[in-house]
Nucleic acid binder design. Structure first.
Lengths: 214, 214
DNA sequence: CCCGTTGCTTAACACCGCTAACTTGCCCGC
DNA sequence: GCGGGCAAGTTAGCGGTGTTAAGCAACGGG
């Protein structure tokens, strides 16, 4: 059971005149699936994606400039869901502090549910970003949006008196760092004897709530 | 101008009978240098290391089972310095809380000074560790030692009354998560308009000190 | 002086991302 | 109905990677 193309996966029929774009979506879908199967970007090869779609490797490059662009686009899809999940969780509470906590819980839950996407977006300095030294095209739109939502949620806590007066951005960054720390470490140090995630997260949220209170 | 071995870097003279191990050290040194030069594990190839040492690629495998083992060993060297740096910083204060804060500052400083090593040890789920599913040979000795020192430092704070009574391990994990969050995000999101590191770190330490106080 | 062990090298495999150049088959205009 | 243009792929291949099998050469004890 090699899973490596004894049968090249039923070669796909050629697209109609208009919709060469159809292949693009199929590539994205196949990549997304392979990514969660293999669990790591480096284990998902262009050749494997092409084979899964039923097409030859160079066809990928008709729709994506390189491998990284393909991977990033897959992850950014999940990423829009990321912001949406946080917004939904936050909307279930009227109290600003409870709403913010819910947002934090949603962040951690989503990160742990989509570790590959999370790692690629938040735990790798993309090679492309390195080469474009100086300016930073990173900070995906969805990511910036999510952060801004976070900052606004913090501002509401400050305004409501749940937090001592301070720069909402700085507070938001501290909270971001906290939830990212949880996700990041739990993803990487899987062998470590962590306490239950809920216990850890609630404890962290509590400490921050106390530390930031007036 | 390929920069690729116009002169193969002066072929190394063969080692005497006893010290084939000499090559091993030279490999480690060359790898360490290449790692900080290139800034990423994936940009350091076995061939490049071999060339830098003045030897052919297969010679590497006489001393290391595979590339990952080589990289990890390099990083674990830095890692022992990591614990040492924290211990040294902590020893400069008698007050338990100040000592713990110094430890946290040292953690962040070291991580930002050695981002390649930090990323490999704390921000990648090693492929090897994935394959050995279940048990976890990860958690390098130096890492465990450093964490234990951290826990003890926390316990001293609890005993001294600087922190409310609670499980020192849980508190230590929260602090670890916080400092790791800083290092991890700063390394990866280099393009983000972060506030000065000192400001960020001091703010985080202050929030935790308040949040954990009795 | 010889010969086994040590310390490497040469050659090659299988895979990777990616590109240039070619072919195939749909669809529009006549 | 039927050319021809062009979209939508393909075949072939380059230079790179980690890794392995097999061979060779020098050192040092007998």
């Amino acid at each position: 059971m090699t899973a490596r193309s004894p049968a090249p996966h039923a070669r796909r029929s050629r697209a109609r005149r208009g919709d060469g774009v159809r292949l693009r979506d199929e590539i994205l879908a196949a990549t997304a699936q392979l990514l969660v199967e293999k669990g790591d970007e480096s284990l998902v090869s262009i050749r494997a994606v092409a084979d899964a779609v039923g097409v030859t490797p160079p066809s990928i490059y008709l729709h994506f400039p390189d491998k990284e662009a393909l991977i990033v686009e897959v992850c950014e899809q999940r990423f829009r869901e990321f912001d949406a999940a946080q917004e939904a969780a936050a909307a279930q509470h009227t109290d600003p502090l409870e709403s913010l906590k819910a947002r934090g819980r949603a962040y951690v839950r989503f990160g742990l549910d989509h570790p590959e996407a999370y790692r690629i977006l938040f735990m790798t300095r993309s090679v492309r970003a390195i080469e474009l030294t100086g300016e930073s095209p990173e900070a995906s739109d969805a990511g910036v949006t999510a952060l801004m939502h976070f900052v606004e949620a913090v501002r509401r806590c400050v305004d409501a008196g749940a937090f001592a007066p301070a720069d909402p951005m700085l507070i938001a960054l501290k909270l971001w760092i906290a939830v990212h720390g949880v996700v990041s470490l739990l993803i990487c140090e899987r062998g470590f004897p962590w306490p239950p995630v809920d216990v850890l997260v609630e404890s962290i949220l509590e400490t921050h709530a106390r530390g930031l209170a007036p």
